[in-house]
Design a protein around this nucleic acid. Structure first.
Length: 196
DNA sequence: ATCCCGAGGG
DNA sequence: CCCTCTGGAT
């Protein structure tokens, strides 16, 4: 049960896809602030397309990178209509062919909709994997490969969710809360932050 | 000044 | 590989 104050909320696959696209380099809180009004006006690809770039931009102007995101959301809506019967395609290749949708966004959507377990390496997962010594890889794709290799297949979705939440609430970027961390005993980075 | 469930273009 | 897009929170 996601907390609407801190995690993305959505009521359809289309809304999920759009919300995740909007969440790039933006907090879920800021996305959740803008999306209710947006989806009230345009909850489906057809209405989103009709709203147009300027219309979408007005709803999301409080989110970072809003011009590019408005352009992508409208373009993506058009492709859903013209190529996918107005539905969100449930495979990685088609998702990543959409403007504004890269590997990370596709992974979140596929994982969230229960299509395929995946570890989406966002800024939180990347940071936590490095601090815990689970990966030293320099790119998200390589960190993902390391995590996929060391995580039991049946635990991918749960591992992904834990990494995100741990990074967001405990192993935060600036002042990680090592004192309340469940795995600090296993963490090679703890000493870096002690006393801070 | 840094960070936030990144992606696309040069 | 780098740069840009971008506002709000801390």
């Amino acid at each position: 049960m996601p907390d609407p104050r801190t995690e993305l909320t959505y009521q359809s696959p289309f809304a999920l896809l759009v919300a995740v696209v909007l969440s790039a380099q933006a907090t879920d809180v800021s996305v959740n602030k803008a999306t209710p009004a947006l989806f009230a006006s345009a909850g489906a690809p057809q209405t989103m397309l009709a709203l147009g770039e300027a219309g979408v931009a007005r709803f999301i102007s409080s989110i970072g990178l809003y011009n590019a995101k408005a352009r992508n959301v409208v373009a993506l809506s058009r492709i859903l209509i013209e190529q996918h019967g107005g539905e969100v395609p449930l495979n990685r290749q088609a998702l990543q062919a959409l403007p504004g949708v890269g590997r990370k966004t596709a992974s979140v959507v596929l994982n969230e909709l229960g299509v395929e377990p995946a570890i989406a390496v966002d800024t939180h997962v990347f940071r936590v994997a490095h601090r815990l010594g689970l990966s030293a890889a320099k790119t998200p794709d390589l960190v993902e490969a390391d995590l996929m290799r060391i995580t039991p297949k049946t635990g991918l979705t749960r591992a992904h969710h834990w990494l995100i939440l741990h990074g967001r609430y405990t192993c935060v970027a600036r002042k990680p809360k090592c004192g309340s961390c469940l795995v600090s005993d296993l963490c090679p980075s703890r000493e870096l932050f002690e006393g801070a």
